[in-house]
């Protein structure tokens, strides 16, 4: 077995201490209870603050466990807060792409749409917030599946082109993970294509997927791959949303 990494062991000890302490702790206190040098402890605590596992009380300057720690345990970012933070950027994406945009999260094993921006052509459209999507048959679902989402995929065929083979899906998901985006071409609805990318929370964990939906002619090039400009617009938008998430 490889030797344990000392700084990680120490960081774990700091977290344990903070999470069981009855009150917030100062650096000196932490250093003393762990038998570490104050400067070492300070370095560890500051790093933990940066990744959101520890928080500093702005008033007292003392430390407590951060919001990020709860998220590690699987408690997701509040979806309504996610929508609030994402709204501006996804509106911008919808305008630039001239297509509809959706944001989805994994919820109890399902892919749920939590935000939907209409295609900006003022045609009749219905908000799909709160509706479910089949994980294996849409770009949003593939992004979430590829990034560790515990999702039920029953391989129901929706069209001729739905991926219903577990091995083929697994290969595709590996590609999704590598290139950072997923595509669906008439796999859920005939005449519809979609492209999606992951939205990352603090520490890089994927918390949601954002995607653009439209006709295959508009979203895809002759080679059948999504237009590079579209992938870039989508990348800019998810980067901005991820940056918002890192700030909370």
């Amino acid at each position: 077995m490889a030797r344990p990494v000392q700084s990680i062991e120490r960081a774990a000890a700091v977290l344990e201490l903070l999470s069981t302490a009855p009150a917030e702790m100062g650096v000196t206190e932490l250093a003393e209870s762990l038998g570490l040098a104050k400067s070492t402890t300070h370095g560890i605590v500051r790093t933990l603050c940066e990744v959101g596992l520890v928080e500093q009380d702005p008033g007292t300057g003392r430390y407590r466990v951060g919001r990020g720690l709860a998220e590690l345990g699987g408690a997701p970012v509040d979806v309504h807060q996610l929508r609030s933070l994402a709204a501006n950027w996804l509106d911008g994406l919808a305008v630039r792409a001239a297509e509809s945009v959706r944001l989805a999260v994994p919820e109890a094993g399902r892919v749920v749409v939590v935000h939907h921006v209409f295609r900006p052509d003022d045609s009749r459209q219905v908000l799909e917030v709160g509706t479910e999507r089949p994980a294996h048959a849409c770009a949003l679902g593939k992004v979430l599946l590829a990034n560790g989402g515990q999702l039920a995929s029953d391989f129901t065929p929706f069209t001729r082109r739905t991926v219903t083979d577990a091995r083929r899906l697994a290969t595709e998901l590996t590609a999704v993970r590598h290139r950072g985006w997923a595509v669906e071409v008439e796999e859920r609805v005939t005449g519809e294509a979609g492209v999606a990318r992951p939205v990352r929370g603090r520490g890089g964990r994927v918390v949601a997927a954002a995607g653009v939906t439209g006709t295959p002619e508009r979203l895809l090039g002759r080679d059948g791959a999504p237009h590079p400009w579209l992938l870039e617009q989508l990348a800019d938008a998810v980067r901005a949303v991820s940056a918002e998430l890192a700030r909370i």
Binding site: F118, P120, D122, L127
Partner: peptide, 14 residues
């Protein structure tokens, strides 16, 4: 002002 109307698009409707 009238040219600005073209920029208004419905993003969602309840």
């Amino acid at each position: 002002p009238e040219v600005l109307r073209r920029h208004w698009h419905r993003a969602g409707e309840w």
